[in-house]
Write a protein that binds this DNA or RNA. Structure first.
Lengths: 357, 357
DNA sequence: CTGAAAGCGCTAACAG
DNA sequence: CTGTTAGCGCTTTCAG
């Protein structure tokens, strides 16, 4: 009668608690020992399986509560096919991905699913293909399905439930949620055209990304629809980044016959344009109108506040998770490549073209 | 000679790949079979253990690359004490926690650690104590240490490395990173006092949270330092939320002798104050100055843009993770309860008090 | 140098 | 109704 196994003891603080070797985790072993039953019985009680006497069940429950036991996500995942955990895989936690995360959280609320966001913290050395690595590490074990945020490659060979958000390279075999970049480009340029602008410059995005190409296409389509010819001399590479955007903007604005408006493929280069204009003493929106794309927080704080095209990022996260849940449940989503509308956010960087002096 | 185990075969696409039963995961078993060696040998090669012939090593490496094998995070975690993964545990993914996440990502970049953010999606039913549940589920198995974001309770009994960010209830036994709420409150009220205001109302926060009490204390200290008496009739409960904030603001502004300025304990109630003022036809900042706390994105877009106290949320995430890494490495952090400075962001909701008409 | 075997914490047959 | 046993994918002794 000397083992700690003599169960139902009424002692308030028993030995099982001091097992601090696992970083303080209480294991099922300890619960079993404390309750004087076997591990499998504890498992049954915890999972509500039938075939346990109500007395045993109560005892176990009491011990579980007293010890504050919680099943290890890991061990459970390893054993079960199903985990009720959804993964959001991101290259890094930056404004776009965290916004997606908020939308994802909105979508799982009240569904019983849990959310795990995973990132190796933007390891530059192995940029391309990070999604494959991550997928291998968590799919089929930790999570039931995954959302890939802006993956660089989409020819993934997993047959598990996966949804990609805004993939870098075109349409892919896997379900995808994207913003309507084409429509966004049109929106921006239509706005400028409506304001009377006819010489509209564009700072294009990274040519290897579909999103960038679609925005440019929107620019061209808007011109065509309005019967305004595109002056190819007014297109410059902005590459989605401030430095290159600044260079392109400067070239455009120092032209003999500069554009009266500039559509930048993203806010970062639009903001750079604003800076260049200020340096050149060009009044915005007095002598130059600027439209961006993305609606990042900074754009509202710019001087003047930037008119820009907003992507419904949060909504994209929400829809991707909803689609993923359907996939996990074995359903076939109605639309596997939904495209979400973009909207124009009018602020003060655009104005009607003044009559030529 | 019929088994698939006959190893070194030169066939391009062998059978091992078709094992689609694990959601497409390639397991070490499959790699071993394909390479014609045992599982343990594969493990050794992957972990760079000594005692493997260079020939075997090459064969295995080749197969690993060809099959795109990646170790399962789960299985590895279960076996090893150390995982090189850090956890950020949040009740929900909302603006505050996602901002923390960005800071955390900044901190792990280049350290070799990976980051997992975990959330059960704000299950309302068991609000208090979610941190205990989460901790049990991931500590000691999935992650080496964890950052708790705004936990409701901090008397956690784990001895593993844990750092809390902005805990709801006072100082705790565990290491903590917080914003200087007291200083923030002083900053706000000093600003108002400096503008000439003498009748300054306050919309207080939730009385059960230390942060709220400290902000109020700052309000009082600023008054004391300036030798201005506090008029208790000018304090109203804002409770950190719009509805209650609106009620408090209305009471304050309809007083016979209303305050000329209001310090709201958070932006949400400050924004509510702005709305009430507009409804009442009170010009801000002409007849009323308003200062908030938090600097949420909406505050910059308000009309007028809100002057507010900014918390360095991102920095808090960064510092918490740095502290966590030190803890995991077995080091003793210099300061286990660092407090980060808050700053005043002056926008257009505050102005100098006009001479009384 | 290589493989067989044990075991991390848990669940699911299957016996007792 | 309960306990024993096997095994999820991996690492690590320990024999061969």
């Amino acid at each position: 009668m000397s083992g700690p196994t003599n169960g139902t003891g009424a002692s308030e603080r028993t030995a099982a608690v001091d097992a601090t070797q696992n970083g303080g985790r209480v294991t099922m072993q300890q619960v079993a020992a404390e309750a004087g039953v076997s591990v499998s019985t504890v498992s049954k009680v915890l999972n509500g399986r039938y075939g346990v006497s109500s007395h045993t069940s109560e005892t176990v429950t009491e011990v579980v509560n007293r010890l504050g036991y919680e099943a290890s996500l890991i061990a459970r995942s390893l054993r079960n096919r199903r985990t009720n955990v959804l993964g959001v895989l991101v290259a890094d936690f930056e404004p776009f991905s965290t916004e997606v995360l908020k939308g994802a959280a909105d979508a799982i609320r009240g569904t019983g699913y849990e959310l795990v966001a995973y990132s190796a913290g933007g390891r530059v050395d192995e940029q391309v293909g990070w999604e494959r690595r991550y997928l291998s590490r968590v799919m089929g074990t930790l999570v039931d399905g995954a959302v890939l945020v802006t993956p660089t490659v989409t020819d993934v060979k997993y047959d598990g439930p996966i949804v990609a958000i805004d993939p870098h390279t075109g349409r892919s075999p896997l379900p995808t949620v994207t913003a309507d970049n084409l429509q966004g480009g049109r929106l921006a340029v239509d706005h400028l055209l409506g304001l009377g602008h006819r010489r509209i410059g564009m700072l294009t995005g990274r040519s290897d990304l579909v999103s960038a190409r679609l925005r440019e296409k929107g620019y061209r389509e808007a011109h065509a629809a309005a019967g305004v010819p595109v002056d190819e001399a007014l297109l410059r590479l902005g590459a989605f980044e401030p430095e290159q955007g600044r260079i392109g903007a400067r070239e455009l604005l120092t032209l003999p016959d500069p554009p009266t408006a500039i559509f930048a493929a993203n806010d970062l280069s639009a903001l750079a344009t604003l800076e260049v204009a200020a340096e050149l003493g060009i009044d915005v929106p007095g002598r130059l109108s600027v439209v961006g794309f993305d609606n990042i927080p900074d754009s509202a704080l710019a001087d003047p506040p930037l008119t820009t095209v907003q992507q419904p990022i949060r909504q994209m996260g929400h829809d991707a998770v909803e689609m993923l849940m359907a996939l996990v449940a074995g359903e076939e989503p109605a639309d596997t490549h939904p495209t979400l509308s973009t909207t124009l956010v009018e602020r003060r960087s655009t104005a009607a073209l003044k009559a030529t002096s």
